[in-house]
Design a protein around this nucleic acid. Sequence first.
RNA 1: GCGCCCGUAGCUCAGUCGGAUAGAGCAACAGCCUUCUAAGCUGUGGGUCGGGGGUUCGAUUCCCUCCGGGCGUGCCA
Length: 569
Amino acid sequence: MRTSRVRKGRQELNVNTKDTIAQIVKDALAGAAGEGIMAAAEAPPVKIEYPKEERFGDYATPFAMEAARVFRKSPFEIGTAIAKHIEKSSLVERVDVVKPGFINIFLSARYLCDVLQTVLAEKDSYGRNSRQAPRRINIEFVSANPTGPLNIVSARAAAIGDTLANLLEAAGDRVDREFYVNDFGNQVLLLGQSVLCRYREISGETVSFPVDGYHGAYVRDIAAHIRENFNAQVEALPSDDEKAGFMAVKAIEYNVSGQRHDLARFNVNFTTWFSERGLHESGAVAHTRDEMKARGLLYEEAGKTVFRSTDFGDDKDRVVVRDDGRPTYMLADIAYHRDKIARGYDLVIDIWGPDHHGYIARMAGAMKAFGYGEDAFRVLIAQQVNLVMEGELVKMSKRLGKFSTMSELLDEIGVDVARYFFIMRSIDSHLDFDLALAKKQSSENPVFYLQYAHARICSIFREAQKRDLGYEPSERDGAHYDNPEALALLKLLARFPEEIADAANACEPHRVTNYLLRLAQGYHRFYTEHRVLADDAVQRNSYMALCDGVRIVLKNGLGLLGVSAPERM
RNA sequence: GCGCCCGUAGCUCAGUCGGAUAGAGCAACAGCCUUCUAAGCUGUGGGUCGGGGGUUCGAUUCCCUCCGGGCGUGCCA
């Protein structure tokens, strides 16, 4: 963004308002230190906050209180010394030092007008930050077993992962989205056997179903699909095992394709679909075992090969090769993560379900064992989703075939509401998703509140066109923004880039929904108080420009969430 | 037993790295449309931030402990 520029080395960097304020405070601190008032070297970090009350300014720092002990001076004294060195620039209008020692900073009207100009100029790209050195990030999420359709838990992971990826990109990084397909192991065999049974049933045979088999109705669909398209190939196979193996391969193709389709409908598109089977077939799994052995990370015990994960923070050492020589899931997963790092990513993020949190220590241990830095690997646990129907909890289980699929959810409440609901809550909080309520109250949903603000603005522009009122953003006057509603909007527009950066750095997509809610609220208030299509042309242009800015930010913000910004409702 | 997440208004949840008088939506109540979309706005009521201790200028936030809810603690994936 263009709001301000700071020279750093020879490169010119775009910096958001908050970072700029932080720099101003740091410079002021250095200035005060230069006068011998305090030693800047020992200073605690400068935190910039948003005061709760308007009278405390637009940005504030509690620095003086925090530094009081170090500097052996009263917070107020420190605050005053720093405030004296904060130059009243085109950005800062006023600096107050209050009560214990808060330093409160007020943005200038001129700066806020500049921000609006930036929004209008940058349009779709407003809000994006740039980094001096963009990180290459791989974010792996959903990665549901290819043994059936995606359920609600996967839907939450999909919404969170995709939004986080959007945010990291907007924060200046390069991001790939990846889905790990677990197309290997016992479950694959079991799926094949389950399909084979249904296949036989269709042919009129009576067969006994595998005890732990997959009972979902979709298994019959797959059987029917195979019977229709691959009947001759199946019949040509001599043994049941081979038939089941063939079924498994086809069933996984069928399921993965279905998952891909459902996710695309949910606005989630993966860069890479990575096959676990491929890791085994390429020898990467065996190679990882050899590597671990060469590094002395393994020992043998009762015919099994065990990873010394306790040396790297795990509770317990973990078996990586069974006594029959078959590798465990974990060995493949280590190979997988090594592969990701080898592909050149600076940061590998995994989003897992709550049932995998016990797995973090051993995986992190493996990464550590291979010497990858702690900041190269991060696991986020997306807490569980309880599907509630009419106030009653609905249990989900793929095995039992009683589950509500993601695609059913989308049929019920639509993509926009689903994505928004999954994102609006912190990733750490359990989510009660009342399907009936989400559908019934859809017109009172927060997502509609946001979309309505956008549609209302679009409506104004349509009306202007209808009345043949031109819109000349250059012919505007900052004086028309001198009211509480307009000022509040301008300040919120200025905050958008830093909200993105903060949400991305904290890996907390839900912050964006909070921000957009405040923006929409600010707009609805403005709309109620002020007539945009005023008779006076300069006033009209000023207000239309403001509306246009809000529209752009709403659209960009909703875009990050994967939610549409309708022009009419 | 051990580990992770959660406990904030009637309900669902925000609350930034420890900051100023703890917020929003829904629900309840009272107002606001002859003019750009009322899916909106304004106002009112509603809280021992699960209990107790500690750390400090300051704790919903950090630490300890107890209580309650969920999940995990595989040679399944």
